[in-house]
Design a protein around this nucleic acid. Structure first.
Length: 224
DNA sequence: GCATTAACACGTA
DNA sequence: TACGTGTTAATGC
């Protein structure tokens, strides 16, 4: 995923639009670049855009009053997020931070609501995406309460490769073990141990600041 | 017992 | 140099 146009061609709701609507959407979009650790959005800001990741990886993040950090989800290239707050016309509820150099596309709120009012394919896509997210987050609660750390790390990794939400993701993801820890809810040291177990089981290959998935289905049902 | 934090040496970009 | 990794020791639930 290198360019905005490549991103749009893999967005099913966009492909389904007629030429005039595509043009209207296309001209309203703005592309921005962010270096690693930069804020794409901050908690409390107005939600005036739907956000797509063209290149890179961003995370939805929250910081506790005592300074602890949790990551709700990582968003890889090819996917859109942030519709919840735009739909409700409320302030951003979480920080969005680039995990590595990332190119992002912003769709203005006005375009978003116009699509909502005029395009069945857009509505259908949004419904699918929200439904998929509900399933993902319910799964997260289940894993958080029921699974051991090795399995939590396995599911956290697998969640970054949801083909419904993230259609155009290759098998390798560039993410540090510390960030995986924030995503899985375990310490960096424990992530390191878990990755060694998952590697031994032939499910992943751990690399420097990256993980390659070898067996996605195996990761999804890994229980130790 | 097991995970977490802290601390350290080492390797990599 | 700055950051990520692999490991160990002390601490806490």
């Amino acid at each position: 995923m290198r360019t905005l146009d490549a991103m749009l061609e893999t967005s099913p709701w966009f492909v389904a639009l007629g030429a005039p609507a595509r043009e209207r959407v296309r001209t309203s979009l703005v592309v921005r670049e962010y270096p690693t650790t930069a804020f794409v959005c901050r908690k409390g800001e107005p939600s005036d855009h739907w956000i797509g990741v063209i290149e890179g990886l961003v995370k939805l993040n929250a910081l506790s009053p005592s300074g602890k950090c949790v990551t709700f989800t990582g968003v890889p290239a090819g996917s859109w997020f942030g519709e919840g707050s735009v739909l409700k016309r409320e302030a951003r509820k979480y920080d969005v931070i680039a995990l590595r150099a990332s190119r992002v596309v912003l769709m203005p709120e006005a375009t978003f609501h116009w699509l909502l009012d005029t395009s069945f394919s857009f509505n259908r896509h949004l419904l699918m995406q929200l439904n998929e997210r509900v399933g993902q987050f319910i799964g997260m609660v289940e894993h958080e309460r029921l699974l051991e750390p090795d399995a939590k790390v396995a599911r956290a990794l697998a969640s970054l490769f949801n083909p419904q939400l993230y259609p155009a993701t290759g098998p390798q993801i560039q993410i540090s073990q510390e960030e995986l820890g924030y995503l899985a809810g375990v310490s960096r040291q424990r992530v390191n141990q878990a990755l060694q177990q998952l590697e031994k089981a032939g499910l992943v290959k751990a690399e420097y600041s990256a993980v390659t998935i070898l067996d996605l289905d195996g990761l999804r049902c890994f229980e130790g």
